[in-house]
Design a protein around this nucleic acid. Structure first.
Length: 581
RNA sequence: GGGGACGUGGCGCAAUUGGUUAGCGCGUCGGCUUGUCACGCCGAAGGUUGCGGGUUCAAGUCCCGUCGUCCUCGCCA
């Protein structure tokens, strides 16, 4: 190239008038007035208007949108009536002395404009064009600043970044692993990390007492708007700590991130809510607390009810009936209530009982079953004339999960969420184990290295009530992180394996190396992992993780730009001792 | 694996109850144009209505199947 840029397209101001400059960039638009042409030149930093006299520079007539050019010329203050207050460079223009064509282009499959509304498929197939658009570029810049802010805060707090392997030992526990077949060891494979969990714990045993890493993790599960096959995690682990120490570190990071990137001041320490209380009040382990609606317990009245669904539900072990008052809901049409029932059923409830408290008396599915004492109980729960009350029945977690989703349904429908607020909170004291109906055994709710908050009973005893030093970080109803204090004593670890049905041999085969690590003076330790993509998504106010990932995969797990995954050729299969079928 | 939504020139959309030659904007191509900034004006090209079958005198529209995309339940320690 003859003309290499001396300035970017975003920086020239009126003070630069009369300077000779060279700009490089892409043509955003050409406005052809015959004897005079304007070119908006774009690069990562902005737009600058170039004025061209086509009689002097006839090559301008060849140009089109998205051609790559170099402009050599002089900065000039625009005539007073031709200034553009909308643009930072709108007071000046560059008068072209020379135009060098650096590259032409095919006609782009969609227009490269900020507000272009085109199929996401097409945008992702041509992500390099999509990324020229300001909104996409802005999200990429946001992520870059986010990473920088996180690293700064972690380094300032004395943490050390250590990289851990991508090729590691596979484990059938938890999410499905991506497998990488070994060429050298026929029949064997590495697994890609679902997280660097055991490596970071090993680093604690190694004495790296404050570790962090911004790392890529992989889970071979179905995708969602907020779940990708590969995602980025802020992985943190600390030695000689209790959970409050982890909270303190992460609160500093989050407060700094929200301040620097969103300009929002958040108060620390963040409120803490036990899992049980969060479930009981909000019907969720990631409660949207910017909506004040809370669930209440109707079990005592339900036991007396002539409504058989209620009476039967509470007669079962762990059975409960929970209600939720929707203020002003008595005036709701049938549609949103029917929709709410669909929501409840989708999340596993048998149905949604409801009653409208109208001036004419109770109306709805539950109305004819209500006794005077029931109405008193509803009044005590805060229900007034004009309100709607909805109920779900079932086991504690099931009934409340469904009701929690119904709560969100009405909160959105009635605009009851104060989106001007930012609510961070910690959810603590999760159950340690979860019953897996399919496999008829308990399994770890988080992972098997989480420490219980109390002594574990002998294997075989009921462990459904055991709580773990397990915590989630929630912001505005989104789970953005999860962590725990870990087990650092081998005998406790062995007991946990026994409770989830792993024999000593199985445990040794899968995690034996790590059990040996624990035997060499493992310090008490704990940590957390935050979803960086999700944080970026929230900060960018994006609806999908794809919006904050440079080259994301679509919901079927393919990359539209590179057409991955693809079929390896025969030779590659052979080298891996595998055969395509 | 289940449920829902969508699929019409390159892009975004329209097309009444099934009814004439499938329209509009943007883009593209050609022409005009000296102060625009989503420049403007004139003109042109561009369609197997995702694909396959069916119903009908007649299908973009109705039915069945299929493919694709998105959302979602399951799944995600």
């Amino acid at each position: 190239m003859r003309h290499q840029r001396t300035r970017t397209c975003g920086e020239l101001r009126i003070e630069n008038a009369t300077e000779k400059v060279v700009l490089n960039g892409w043509i955003q638009a050409i406005r052809d007035h015959g004897g005079l042409m304007f070119i908006d030149l774009r690069d990562r930093y902005g737009f600058t208007q170039v004025v061209v006299d086509p009689a002097r520079l006839p090559q301008v007539n060849e140009l089109g949108p998205e051609w790559v050019i170099a402009i050599a010329g002089e900065v000039r203050a625009r005539p007073a009536d031709a200034r553009n207050a909308e643009r930072s460079t709108g007071e000046i223009e560059v008068v072209a002395d020379d135009i060098e064509i650096l590259n032409g282009t095919k006609v782009p499959p969609f227009e490269i404009t900020d507000d272009c509304r085109t199929r996401e498929e097409l945008r992702l197939e041509h992500r390099y064009l999509d990324m020229r658009r300001r909104p996409v570029l802005a999200n990429m810049e946001l992520r870059s600043r986010l990473n920088h802010t996180i690293r700064s805060s972690m380094m300032e707090q004395g943490f050390m970044e250590v990289e851990t392997p991508i090729l590691m030992k596979t484990s059938p526990e938890g999410a499905r692993d991506f497998l990488v077949p070994s060429r050298v060891h026929p029949g064997q494979a590495y697994g890609l990390p679902q997280s660097p969990q055991l490596f970071k714990q090993t680093l604690m045993v190694a004495g790296i007492d404050r570790y962090f890493q911004i790392c890529r993790c992989f889970r071979d599960e179905d995708l969602r708007a907020d779940r990708q096959l590969e995602f980025t995690q802020l992985d943190v682990e600390m030695s000689f700590v209790r959970q409050e120490d982890v909270f303190l570190v992460m609160e500093r990071v989050m407060a700094r991130v929200w301040k620097d990137i969103a300009g929002v001041s958040v108060a620390a320490p963040f409120p803490k809510l036990s899992w049980e209380e969060s479930m009981a009040r909000f019907g969720s382990d990631k409660p949207e607390t910017r909506c004040s609606l809370e669930c209440f317990d109707f079990s005592a009245r339900a036991a007396q009810s002539t409504f058989r669904v209620f009476a039967q539900a509470v007669a079962k072990p762990q059975g409960t009936v929970r209600g939720l008052v929707i203020p002003g809901g008595a005036s709701l049409a049938r549609k949103p209530i029917d929709d709410a029932e669909v929501v409840a059923k989708t999340y596993g409830a048998g149905g949604l009982a409801w009653v409208k408290l109208t001036p004419e008396g109770p109306q709805g599915t539950l109305a004819r079953f209500l006794q005077p004492e029931d109405l008193t109980a509803l009044a005590e729960a805060g229900a007034k004339t004009g309100d709607l009350v909805v109920f779900t029945a079932g086991r504690f977690e099931a009934a409340l999960t469904a009701l929690g989703q119904v709560r969100l349904h009405f909160a959105r429908h009635l605009n009851l969420i104060d989106t001007s607020q930012t609510h961070f909170l910690w959810i603590t004291d999760f159950p340690m184990f979860e019953w897996n109906e399919e496999e008829q055994r308990f399994e770890a709710k988080h992972h098997m290295f989480t420490a219980p908050t109390s002594e574990l009973p002998e294997p075989g005893a009921d462990i459904s009530h055991i709580k773990a030093s397990l915590y989630d970080l929630v912001v505005n109803g989104n789970e953005i992180g999860s962590g725990s204090i870990r087990i650092h004593r081998p005998e406790v670890q062995a007991k946990v394996f026994a409770h989830v049905g792993l024999t000593a041999e199985q445990a040794a085969d899968k995690f034996g190396w790590f059990l040996r690590v624990l035997e060499y003076g493992a310090p008490p330790h704990g940590g957390i992992a935050l979803g960086v993509d999700r944080i970026a998504m929230l900060l960018a106010n994006a609806a999908s993780l794809r919006d904050v990932i440079a080259f994301p995969k679509i919901s079927n797990g393919t990359c539209l730009m590179t057409q991955s995954p693809s079929a390896p050729d025969e030779k590659q299969w052979r080298e891996l001792n595998l055969r395509p079928n």
